[in-house]
Nucleic acid binder design. Structure first.
Length: 595
DNA sequence: GTTAGGG
DNA sequence: CCCTAAC
């Protein structure tokens, strides 16, 4: 039997026993960086697609087997001062502004162009003229987003992974395909309650796994799926459903999730637990058109010849609603993009652009990986009554079409109280401005990561100027729930998000290193670490090895060539001496064979 | 997980 | 300080 044991003497006669190996659980570990950017992008896009893309099916048949792809989903940062001033709590702090509706007359037609924004189309062109003539003009509204794109994720084509392009300083995530042959309102729609499904658990797990690998605390699971306000108590109505243009009717929730083939959603509990029968092909779900509750209106059957008019009805109201139904037979929201009006990123100035991208990516991913709720904003005010029809809320009225928005709201349980809307402390308070170069987040956001990015007109990312902030302003605040009161995880977040901050060795550290190497040699960096730098958590044995390497180099070059804090020549001399000693193979591999 | 060495 | 082959 042969045992090997290091000799217990070495340089300058030091008597150094081998350092016992610590238990595995006690060893320090060095986390490897893994670049999952592309995976992130893909998962993010899938998530976005699952939660945000409310888009009409582009063909008559709504079969699940139909090839469906994500059209466009964009994430943008933009200053939007017009909204936030009257936004309420949720919208200010926990939401994105997703879209806005602008009267058609006010904006250019973006349907024909490569609009990078939200388009709300009423398919006016395809609505029977008899319907349109009711008010004599097109009643659609289009939403235009004029933002430039910066960071673009292109959906995997040909099996290739998504591509990240940094085109500008806006953050813009795009999934697209070229299938613009959508043809709404052409055939009777088999409205299928199953067509809109939340992301799958599998996909969710995948996202979580990826995020976990990056030490991101992920918001609660998506077990309950995505909650759409439009789901609430929507009652089936049958009026006119099968006549005229109503074959085109489709409520918000019926817009299919186009990426579902990639992220097949196998959570049946989420897909069909809405009101009414979930049976496939049903056309009954036209409740978004409203007026269902109106007795006068309901008095008319779909053929206009069934039940007689109730004698005591407000005929004008009824006609008015009828007109509305004719004109706004459906509301089609094509949310091509949603905006993150403000991102605040605190990152060391030594961070690379790559790490910046990664940080943004991870933050956005973390946001979307959590459970999100959708809020509906109209004219800057949140629509709280989920039971109202779109007609009742006025979403279909052209006099109120100036501002329809959707908000994405992270699970509120994850939001610390400090994130209350009026509590502006979620952003660095003006009294304590924090430069972007700060490594750690402000105290006021100790429990979260605040991502906020301000854009100048030129689209450049600029340093945060707290003086420019005023009230619950235009910027929706994007907050990423972090692990509460867990500094370790926070440091790990920073660690994975960017290159470690450079921390030059002090003279005393160099001295400790030299001394340890003199005793232990140049091949036992773990032991050097444990012996001389066990308390210096930021110094890994690889760091020590690297430092020794540079020390040797420094000692060999002329003092004029040296940079940084000068190392006493005495120490450098010891470095050379010890290095020469331990470089001798004779001492490096001394073993003692015991029989 | 450590070590060694290039980047 | 990062990355990774080699052990």
């Amino acid at each position: 039997m042969v045992l090997q044991k290091r000799l217990e003497y070495g340089f300058n006669g030091y008597q150094v026993p081998p350092t016992p190996r610590a238990p595995r659980s006690a060893r320090k570990r060095v986390k490897k960086n893994e670049d999952h950017n592309q995976m992130y992008a893909f998962d993010l896009l899938a998530t976005i697609a699952g939660k945000l893309l409310l888009e009409g099916n582009n063909s008559a048949d709504n079969k699940l087997s139909r090839e469906e792809t994500v059209k466009e989903t964009t994430v943008k940062t933009e200053e939007d001062s017009s909204k936030a001033n009257d936004c309420d709590q949720e919208s200010c702090n926990k939401s994105f502004f997703v879209s806005e509706i602008i009267p058609k007359a006010l904006v250019t037609d973006t349907c024909s162009g490569p609009a990078s924004g939200i388009t709300v189309s009423d398919c006016s062109d395809k609505v029977p003229s008899a319907s349109r003539s009711l008010n004599g003009e097109n009643v659609g509204c289009k939403i235009e987003d004029i933002n430039d794109k910066q960071m673009t994720y292109e959906a995997p084509n040909n099996g290739k992974p998504p591509v990240v392009n940094n085109l500008d300083s806006n953050v813009n995530l795009v999934v697209r395909d070229d299938d613009e042959n959508s043809s709404w309102c052409t055939q009777p729609q088999a409205l299928n309650n199953k067509t809109f499904r939340p992301p799958s658990r599998i996909g969710d797990r995948r996202i979580r796994r990826l995020l976990a690998s990056k030490q991101w605390k992920v918001a609660p699971k998506l077990n309950n799926g995505v909650h759409f306000n439009t789901d609430a108590d929507l009652k089936p109505v049958s009026y006119h459903s099968k006549k005229t243009c109503y074959k085109h009717q489709r409520s918000l929730r019926d817009y299919p999730f186009k990426k579902r083939r990639l992220y097949q959603l196998e959570n049946p509990s989420n897909s069909d637990n809405r009101s009414g029968s979930p049976r496939k092909g049903s056309i009954e779900d036209d409740s978004s058109l409203g007026a269902a509750e109106d007795p006068a209106f309901q008095a008319q059957d779909s053929h206009g010849n069934g039940k007689p008019f109730d004698g005591v009805i407000n005929i004008y109201s009824s006609i008015s609603k009828l007109i509305d139904v004719f004109v706004f037979n459906s509301v089609k929201l094509k949310i091509k993009s949603f905006r993150v009006p403000e991102l605040f990123i605190e990152i060391p100035e030594t961070a690379t652009v790559s790490s910046l991208k990664r940080t943004v990516m991870e933050a956005v991913t973390a946001i979307f990986s959590g459970e999100l709720h959708v809020g509906v904003m109209l004219q800057g005010k949140r629509i709280r009554d989920d039971n109202k029809t779109l007609l009742q809320t006025g979403i279909c009225h052209d006099n109120k079409l100036d501002a329809l928005g959707f908000t994405l709201e992270p699970n509120q349980l994850q939001v610390p109280p400090s994130q209350c809307p009026e509590d502006r402390s979620v952003v660095p308070p003006p009294a304590t401005p924090k430069p972007l170069t700060r490594y750690s987040p402000p105290q006021s956001v100790a429990n979260q990561v605040v991502i906020q990015q301000e854009m100048t007109n030129s689209g450049k990312i600029t340093e945060s100027d707290d003086d420019n902030r005023s009230g619950c302003d235009s910027r929706a605040l994007v907050t990423v729930p972090a692990i509460i009161d867990n500094p370790v995880s926070k440091s790990k977040q920073a660690e994975v998000a960017q290159r470690r901050i450079r921390r030059p060795f002090s003279v005393s550290e160099v001295e400790a290193l030299v001394e340890a190497v003199e005793k232990l040699g140049t091949g036992r960096w773990r032991d050097v670490k444990l012996r001389a730098f066990d308390d210096a958590k930021h110094r890994t044995y690889v760091d020590l090895k690297d430092k020794w390497k540079t020390l040797v180099h420094t000692a060999r070059i002329s003092p004029q060539q040296r940079r940084g804090e000068p190392v006493p020549q005495e120490l450098l001399d010891r470095v050379l001496e010890a290095h020469a000693y331990w470089s001798n193979n004779q001492f490096k591999t001394q073993t003692c064979r015991l029989v």
